[in-house]
């Protein structure tokens, strides 16, 4: 097996497993850059996955055919946004500990999504969806030698959506007035307030947008990888997205890069048996790699990662 064949095996698989991570990590970036820690990404993603599975299934029954997953994405975006509201209310208005509130959100998602699955379908899992996001060659681009085969053949359209949205989020955060407000509120809310920026409102918008992204990430995971929703569909991807966000230093494009890298590690642990050199390495090492790297990054061994200054602190007007 030559080097190129190995790449052709790993790279597409990496991009596929990265798409949901990219989107969820972007959700985390939006929320945390505004100063609200979001441990609830896992729960938001889980709820999005549940909504994605349910509405793709219903879409098929309503005769939407191939449009069903895309319709479910729209619903999952709305559902993710709504599901982030309790976290926003608790951690922004009620000044709860943001980590605790995020943990509660994870509990709530796990309980609610399986409770509703049992209620709707009378079983612990949703029916398998028929209309998955298909693989396809991108016209023109797939004809480019080497790169075309690696990135644009047999690719999922959702992966391109994820990469595109990473650039959109980058543009929003760094090139628009709203993005400037979002960042200022996360770095020094009091200064931002003095300058007339509505801290509470900006944080609410950011957290809710973050929820929408994480919800979409979950729905895409179901439509492209899992195929249905059970209690174990989302088990740790949200936390891995959190890791990607930190490893990417709270920057949308950094988070995308980290998510792609973690996707690579995940796909290596699955496809590794087919690759001569990696066959002998126990997959434990590949499985723990993303988490070890994140810790090293935080400790400053792989480029220092610093959180937004005001993240984790509720804002109280007039407090010193």
């Amino acid at each position: 097996m030559d080097f190129f064949q190995i790449l052709a095996l790993i790279v597409p698989a990496a991009i596929v497993s990265a798409a949901p991570l990219i989107l969820t990590a972007l959700g985390g970036v939006l929320s945390e850059r505004s100063g609200v820690v979001n441990i609830g990404l896992e729960g938001l993603m889980m709820f999005g996955a549940f909504i994605g599975a349910v509405f793709t299934h219903y879409g098929e029954q309503w005769g939407l055919g191939g449009g069903s997953p895309w319709m479910s994405f729209v619903v999952a975006i709305v559902a993710g946004a709504l599901f982030a509201v309790p976290h926003a209310v608790a951690s922004i208005s009620l000044k709860a500990d943001q980590v605790v509130s995020g943990v509660a959100l994870n509990f709530l998602a796990a309980g609610l999504s399986i409770f509703l699955t049992k209620k709707l379908f009378g079983a612990g899992q949703t029916p398998d969806i028929q209309e998955r996001i298909g693989k396809g060659d991108v016209p023109v681009l797939s004809k480019i030698p080497v790169i075309g085969d690696l990135f644009f053949s047999n690719a999922y359209s959702t992966s391109f959506v994820a990469v595109f949205l990473a650039f959109v989020v980058w543009y929003i955060i760094y090139k628009t007035p709203f993005g400037l407000r979002l960042r200022s509120v996360g770095e020094h809310p009091m200064a931002a307030d003095t300058m007339g920026i509505n801290v509470i409102k900006t944080r609410y918008i950011s957290v809710i947008m973050g929820g929408a992204f994480a919800g979409l990430g979950g729905a895409i995971y179901v439509a492209s990888i899992a195929g249905n929703f059970t209690g174990s569909t989302i088990s740790g991807q949200g936390f891995m997205a959190l890791a990607a966000m930190i490893f990417g230093k709270w920057h949308p494009l950094g988070a995308m890069g980290a998510a792609l890298f973690f996707g690579l590690a995940q796909s290596l642990s699955i496809t590794g048996e087919q690759i001569p050199l990696l066959k002998d390495i126990p997959d434990v090492y590949l499985l723990i790699l993303p988490y070890v790297l994140t810790i090293l990054a935080l400790a400053g061994f792989v480029g220092r990662a610093d959180a937004p200054k005001a993240s984790g602190q509720p804002y109280e007007k007039g407090k010193r």
Binding site: P86, S101, L105, L108, G111, I114
Partner: peptide
Amino acid sequence: ELVGIVIALIIF
């Protein structure tokens, strides 16, 4: 799972 929901609400 209802109990999971109740526990989540209690934490909130």
